[in-house]
Simulated scan of single mutants.
Amino acid sequence: MKLTLNNGVTMPALGLGVYQSAPAETADAVRTALQTGYRHIDTAAAYGNERQVGEGIRASGVDRSEIFVETKIWVSDYGFDATLHGFDKAVGKLGIEQLDLLILHQPATDRFEATVDAYRALERLLAEGKVRAIGVSNFRPPHLEDLMARTEIVPAVNQVELHPYFVQPALQKMHASLGIVTQAWSPIGGITFYPGWAPDRVNVMEDPALTTIAGRHGKSVAQVMLRWHLQQGRSAIPKSVNPGRIAENFAVFDFELTDAELEAIDALDRDKRNGPDPDVPRAEMFDRVIPEA
C-alpha cells in the first residue's frame, strides 16, 4: 500500500521505525524488515543509528531503488547552512546519495527563526534533487501556519504522535486540507517509553474495545491499530527489533476493518499524549550535538 505525497512522490504507507533501537540491534532489524517485505525505513540523526540503518539496507539484498529512506534533522543542526551540513552528515552515515524524505524533527518553538531557516534549507535540497520530498515532525497547527507563511513549499508529511488514545482530529483535518500526509509515530500507543513524560499513561494495547475487534478478526491488537491507520490514509512506522513482531506488524494487508469498527476506534480518543509536548522547549535535549560520523 502506497501513499502519493503532494509533490507526486509515492511512499509506502507502512514503515519500520528505529527510535530507541540500539545501534547493535538496528542493522539486523532493518535487514529483517526489508527481507520481510517492508520498503520504508524511518530513522533520525538524534537516534544515533543512521549508520546501522545503512548497514541493514546493504545487508538486506534489496535494491536501494526499492527502499524509501526517511530521516530527520535535529534542532542543534537548525539554521540554513547548519541544516545543509546536517543533510551531508545523514547521507554520509547512511551511505546513500539521495534521501527519499527529509524532515525537521521538532518545531523548536523557542528558536523558530532557526526552524524556518532550516526548512528553507530543505527547500534548497529538494530543488537540487538531493531529497525527493520534505516535511516536518511534531508540528501543531499554529506551527504549520507560521512555517507556511514564511516558506514556499507545503510539507509533504507531518510525523506526529497518533494512536487511538491521541487521535488529533483537528490536526488531521488541517493536513487533509493542505495535502499533508499524517504519519504516526507510536502508532500502536503505550509501548515506546519516554522517560520523564506522562508517568500516568495507559497502555492502549490493553483496551477492551480493541481486544474485542482483534478477536473478531483473529489478529493482534497491534495489527488492528496499524490497519486502522492504513485504512484512514495515514502512514504508520511501528518500531521493533524482534523478528516475530516485525513480521506481525507487516501482516496487516489480508483483512479489513468495517466502518463501524473504524468509528469505534476513533471514539477511544482521550486526547491523551504519551510523549513530549512540542510546545514545551527542552534545552537540555535541543543542545545535543549530532556527531560528524
Rank of each mutant, 00 (worst) to 15 (best):
A114N: 12
I67K: 12
I237N: 00
G86A: 09
L84K: 08
D271L: 02
S65D: 13
L16N: 06
E113G: 14
L14H: 05
M1H: 11
A198Y: 00
M174W: 04
Q98N: 13
E284H: 14
V204E: 10
I41Y: 07
M205K: 08
L268G: 10
A149R: 15
S186G: 05
R227V: 00
P243A: 06
G86T: 05
T192A: 15
E263K: 15
A260C: 03
A59E: 15
D266P: 00
L162R: 13
E50N: 08
V157K: 09
R282Q: 15
T115C: 05
T4A: 01
N138R: 00
H217G: 02
M174L: 14
N49H: 10
D271Y: 03
G215T: 06
E206C: 05
A29W: 14
P291E: 10
Q231I: 06
P187L: 05
Y47W: 09
P291T: 03
A247N: 02
L144E: 09
A44Y: 10
E248T: 04
I265Y: 04
G135N: 12
V154L: 02
I265D: 08
M1N: 06
A29E: 13
P281E: 09
H85N: 14
P243L: 05
T151C: 07
G17N: 04
I213E: 08
E55R: 06
E50I: 02
P107L: 01
A90T: 09
V154Y: 02
P278V: 03
W228R: 05
V167H: 11
L262A: 04
E206I: 02
P281H: 07
Q35I: 06
L99M: 02
G244L: 08
Q106I: 00
H229Y: 10
G196W: 09
M174V: 03
I246K: 11
P238S: 02
V18G: 01
T182Q: 08
R273A: 11
Q232W: 01
H229I: 13
I237F: 00
S65C: 02
V62Y: 08
D269Q: 12
K219C: 03
G179I: 13
R227N: 03
A264H: 01
A283G: 08
D100T: 00
V136S: 10
A176Q: 15
Q168D: 08
L3C: 08
N249E: 10
D254Y: 11
Q223D: 12
L84I: 04
L14P: 09
Q168M: 10
A45V: 00
T26R: 04
G275N: 10
L171D: 03
Q98C: 13
P169F: 01
R64A: 06
E128G: 05
W228M: 05
V280L: 14
A90D: 13
A29K: 13
L3I: 15
R111L: 06
E206W: 09
L171R: 00
D77R: 13
R270Q: 13
E261W: 01
T192I: 15
L262K: 06
L102G: 01
A44F: 07
A133M: 12
H105D: 09
T26Q: 05
I134K: 04
Q223W: 09
V136D: 11
E292A: 14
R111A: 15
E25G: 00
V18P: 04
